[in-house]
Design a protein around this nucleic acid. Structure first.
Lengths: 139, 139
DNA sequence: TCCGACACTCTCCTTTCGGTGCGTATAAAT
DNA sequence: ATTTATACGCACCGAAAGGAGAGTGTCGGA
């Protein structure tokens, strides 16, 4: 247990002030977008539509995996609202609805591509880190 | 209102079966990782540490923006567990804790970089899409 | 002697997430 | 006449996320 005096020596290592923030309105908007877009279901739907092109409701559900109808509807509606997907309703019976990525959606999908690659490349490393953490905790 | 017969003509446009899935265990793990990593707070903390280098608890909180202590602690602990951040405790009084990205964390940050750029580049477009959606809804 | 600083933890409390199940419209197939 | 298929909306419910505020331990400074 060292004294608090040692603190200053640590402190001097980085002394830059908190940098000036950019326009808070834009910042808030970007955070909002990140909050919506960095969502598990959004990412999975994006991914599914990206590699399948066009899918209808139930097909999309199967492509995503274990997602409930409710979440699928909800997420897809939000994505439509944000201009990420295009929803085409064919007025036939029984109903038929097609979903496709808009150019905006495609660009986001491309941006997320790096994250997918990262996840596939580093999952083993994460598992190791978790084990190391658990082991270190016992001691 | 057209008849359901028109359906088949729509249907024939894409006729590929759902493609074979990859190893379900890996797939589940990747989805789990995505679920953890594609989190608003994780992304914001990653971003903050990426551009500030090293931060201590309260500094990190300010850098992120409006985050509660609870969420900050919680997220940062999860990130530590997954090997994304390194946490250094200086045993002085009052306490002093430093947070830095690990190489793994830096690589994830780099992967997310594209998403940040995307968000900054397209936020205006999203706003327009939302307005268009709201306008179309009235009609 | 009391306050403030730091990095939390702990206890409520409210909001959101997400699942299940039911209803609906209508034509075609059995 | 009954069933089936499709893409949902709606209501209900438990679980989890997340915020607010108080408490903690110790020391240096007023």
């Amino acid at each position: 247990m060292r004294k608090a005096l040692a603190d200053s020596e640590i402190e001097t290592r980085r002394r830059y002030p908190v940098p000036a923030e950019t326009d808070p309105a834009i910042e808030a908007l970007v955070q909002d977008i990140i909050g919506k877009v960095a969502d598990k279901w959004t990412m999975l739907i994006l991914e599914a539509l990206q590699e399948q092109g066009t899918l209808r409701f139930t097909q999309l559900g199967k492509a995503v995996g274990r997602i409930s109808q409710k979440m699928l509807t909800q997420t897809v509606r939000q994505m439509e609202q944000d201009g990420l997907v295009h929803r085409t309703v064919h007025p036939v019976i029984p109903p038929h609805v097609d979903y496709t990525l808009t150019p905006l959606g495609e660009s986001l999908s491309a941006a997320f591509c790096g994250v997918w690659i990262w996840a596939e490349a580093h999952h083993a490393e994460i598992l190791r880190a978790r084990e190391a953490f658990a082991a270190a905790r016992k001691a």
